[in-house]
Amino acid sequence: MTYLYSFIFVGLVSALGQLILDNTKLTPGHITSIFVVVGAFLDIFNIYDHIINFVGAGAMVPITSFGHSLIHGALAKTSEMGLSGILMGMFDLTSAGIISAIIFSFAFSLIFNSKD
């Protein structure tokens, strides 16, 4: 059942992005930035947590979950060291994604050349 829920959720988020892309002058860069901010905003009231509990792993795939992971890493550290935990723990949960993207982008750009 998580397969179906994930299919529908990721599909709906992508279709929403496509709807914004087609009907406004915003570029994909604007849309991904807006979605990250929306993902962080939804977490003030724990809304994105409920979505992840309901949908499962598929909810971690859209870029909205990047904002969610940032705010959750920050808040997990605040329980240990107060407000300064926001500075210390911001990248705790997202570092795997960012670091692997940097390493593999660098490694593949050493090996391959641009096609056009």
Partner: peptide, 20 residues
């Protein structure tokens, strides 16, 4: 465009659950 992005995005979501 809307249908294609829904289907492809959904496919990525389903694949990610399979990988998990």
């Amino acid at each position: 465009n809307l249908v294609i992005s829904f289907l492809i995005g959904g496919l990525v979501g389903a694949i990610s659950v399979g990988l998990t």
